[in-house]
Design a protein around this nucleic acid. Structure first.
Length: 560
DNA sequence: GTAATGGACA
């Protein structure tokens, strides 16, 4: 068979996925030129067989066949993302330099991509150097390789700055990568810049770009802006719906439920996961059970993320029995499964069960993290298990080699202070190796209000106001501490300071589900007839509790 | 007769 025909055969066999047969033909070829070698190499590379592609390349060099630009582009695709090891990109770079790389723009772009996807400090620096040297020769692919490389290796901001240069060449792909980078670091400012850029370059019509923008606004907690974009989109697919539903399930669960009703596509597993957490946010048990039914009917019951969301939903709805039932059915539990269940026990007052489950988790070989300890220590705090909580806190460093963070210190402060051990709590803050923030001092202040400790309360409030002069809640708490101690002069001063901040505390809303309907209300709300009815019922309950004696009251307040 | 670079959005 003539050499040309055999090469064509190798190529077409590779294109059909019959790489092994292609290799058999290739091995039978008596003399192989650079085109034949490249055909075989590219067959491996484009089929994802990076190791084999690099092996063919090495054999080719050993056979003293000189690679051309076709060969080099092909072999570089096998060096991407560490698939064949970054060292190969450098050696191929060296060959390319000897062959006159300046005349091979495709090879330079492939090098930029190989270096950028290898990442690390050197990889990105090397990629950037080549990228800069390209000058006018840069194409949309060069920009995408760079920004994807930066985004992938945690240098999103550097990538975005590069992207915002005037001469950046935008493609929908590059644009959506850039927007995703803004979303993952939560940088609204850059996100808006790229949004403007995408409007100027008429890329907004691209569905992936628009979807990324909706996601970016959700991740930057601009849910209303995300919703506005969503409403304006002429075309929406399942990803669009899932993006806005996932975003609103975190910030506006009622909106997520409404979106599900409006959705004109069949919801999938991801949709229902978000809806489950929306139900958790609303503490809507009936709704959550219906969603659970929908999940089972669609055979999504084995999905790990769905199951974890269900455990969390049942826990937050107070249905710990159902939470445990779902948890027990999870075949391969991950750290989120354990955290949800441990947190579920904790928030429902079952601190001992939470600790027991934590021990099972450690026994199962799952290393605990900060979040698990947050759940555990706050469980102990709610249940008044101060010593247990303290021992868990101590074991973080001594047994699990986890350095407690500020959130943990806040939690332990709360544990001690809540139980009335205010000076120990203060001592902890005073000696902690991190700078106490608003939440840590806030935990102390809250407990000072509860235990009517004016001295420490004043101190904690002063610390918080130093950190954040607009901490409205702090002034109110401090004023209440003074009021409880009949210190009316200081009370008046604090109220005046509060007015001086010029802000008002946003009204806390609560929701409750009664016979399949959701009711929302706030304190001192007299707008709806249901509230006055609820007030009457509450009065009767309080009366019953008084008659039942103090023990009963204590139990109720622990549950509430 | 050989390569065609970037591959995102839940």
């Amino acid at each position: 068979m003539p050499l040309k025909h055999a090469t064509t055969l190798v190529k077409s066999l590779c294109a059909r996925g019959a790489v092994r047969h292609a290799r058999a033909v290739f091995d039978e070829m008596p003399d192989r030129d650079v085109v034949a070698w490249t055909a075989m190499l590219s067959g491996y590379a484009s089929g994802g067989c990076h190791r084999e592609a690099l092996d063919v390349f090495r054999r080719m060099l050993a056979a003293a066949v000189v690679p051309n630009e076709f060969t080099l582009s092909s072999v570089l695709t096998a060096c991407r993302g560490g698939g064949g090891g970054g060292g190969d990109a450098a050696s191929i770079h060296a060959i390319a330099v000897r062959r006159g790389v300046d005349h091979m723009p495709y090879v330079v772009n492939a090098l930029v991509d190989a270096y950028a996807s290898r990442g690390g400090g050197d990889g990105l620096v090397d990629a950037r150097r080549l990228f800069e040297a390209l000058g006018e020769g840069r194409t949309a692919a060069s920009w995408t390789s760079m920004i994807a490389g930066y985004a992938r290796w945690g240098q999103e901001i550097t990538g975005l700055q590069l992207f915002l240069q005037d001469d950046a060449e935008l493609s929908p792909f590059a644009c959506s990568i850039a927007i995703h980078a803004c979303a993952s670091v939560g940088n609204l400012y850059f996100g808006q810049q790229i949004h403007l850029l995408s409007i100027r370059k008429a890329l907004g019509a691209n569905l992936a770009v628009a979807n990324s923008l909706v996601d970016m606004y959700c991740m930057c907690e601009s849910i209303l802006e995300a919703r506005r974009l969503f409403d304006e989109m002429p075309e929406r697919n399942l990803v669009t719906w899932n993006t806005i539903i996932a975003g609103s399930s975190r910030h506006d669960p009622l909106m997520a439920m409404q979106l599900l009703v409006d959705m004109d596509l069949e919801p999938n597993c991801l949709t229902l996961t978000s809806i489950t957490s929306a139900c958790a946010g609303l503490a809507a048990l009936k709704c959550g059970q219906q969603v659970h039914g929908a999940i089972l009917r669609r055979n999504y019951g084995d999905d790990l993320k769905v199951s974890n969301a269900l455990v969390d939903m049942y826990s937050k709805c107070g249905s710990i029995f159902n939470a445990k039932k779902v948890f027990n059915m999870i075949a391969c539990k991950d750290i989120l499964s354990w955290t949800s269940m441990i947190g579920g026990y904790g928030m429902n007052g079952y601190a001992n069960e939470a600790i027991e489950l934590f021990n099972s988790m450690v026994h199962a070989g799952v290393p605990p993290d900060h979040v698990v300890f947050m759940g555990l220590i706050s469980a102990c705090s709610h249940a008044g298990l101060v010593d247990e909580g303290w021992n868990l806190f101590r074991s973080m460093l001594s047994e699990y080699n986890i350095q407690p963070n500020k959130a943990i210190y806040g939690c332990v402060t709360n544990l001690l202070a809540h139980a009335g051990r205010l000076s120990e709590a203060f001592n902890l803050i005073d000696t902690m190796p991190l700078t106490a923030d608003e939440s840590v001092w806030g935990a102390l202040l809250g407990a000072c209000k509860m235990h009517k400790n004016v001295e420490l309360g004043r101190l904690a409030a002063r610390k918080i106001i130093e950190i954040n002069p607009d901490a409205v809640k702090t002034y109110i708490l401090l004023a209440n501490i003074y009021a409880a101690d009949s210190k009316w002069g200081e009370y008046a001063v604090t109220r005046r300071l509060l007015r001086a901040t010029g802000s008002s505390k946003e009204v806390g809303m609560s929701c409750i589900e009664v016979t399949h309907k959701m009711y929302s209300f706030s304190t001192a709300d007299s707008s709806s007839p249901q509230v006055s009815l609820a007030d009457e019922v509450l009065q009767i309950l309080v009366q019953h509790m008084d008659e039942a004696g103090n023990d009963f009251v204590v139990n109720i307040s622990r549950v509430a």
